[in-house]
């Protein structure tokens, strides 16, 4: 499936873009992490969470939505 992935903060510095279309053939969030690590090797040592449809998901969650975001540590307030 074709995902729209949004990148923020130091993650966007690595990907050099804030959003892209990404063709994904896996099942779970962990598969997506692996696919992203193949494309962006520098992501492997970065701390980030993944949101699907604006909700944080764990590695075991199945990818069902097309809006995905990679979120580095929060710094609000």
């Amino acid at each position: 499936m074709r995902l729209t992935i949004k990148y923020f903060g130091q993650i966007a510095e690595i990907t050099q873009c804030s959003e892209e279309e990404f063709e994904f053939s896996g099942m779970k969030v962990s598969d997506l992490r692996e696919a992203l690590f193949l494309k962006y090797s520098k992501l492997t040592n970065k701390d980030f969470q993944i949101a699907q449809n604006q909700e944080l998901v764990s590695n075991e969650t199945e990818i069902t939505a097309t809006e995905i975001a990679l979120l580095p540590p929060f710094a609000g307030g």
Binding site: F8, A69, P72, P73, F74, A75, G76, G77
Partner: peptide, 23 residues
């Protein structure tokens, strides 16, 4: 807010270099 809101902060130093803030 500190724990759950996806806001990101770039701390900019006086010499224009920066680091990313973490709560």
């Amino acid at each position: 807010i500190k724990a759950h809101v996806p806001v990101f902060g770039k701390e900019i130093f006086e010499d224009e270099s920066y680091q990313w803030k973490v709560n």
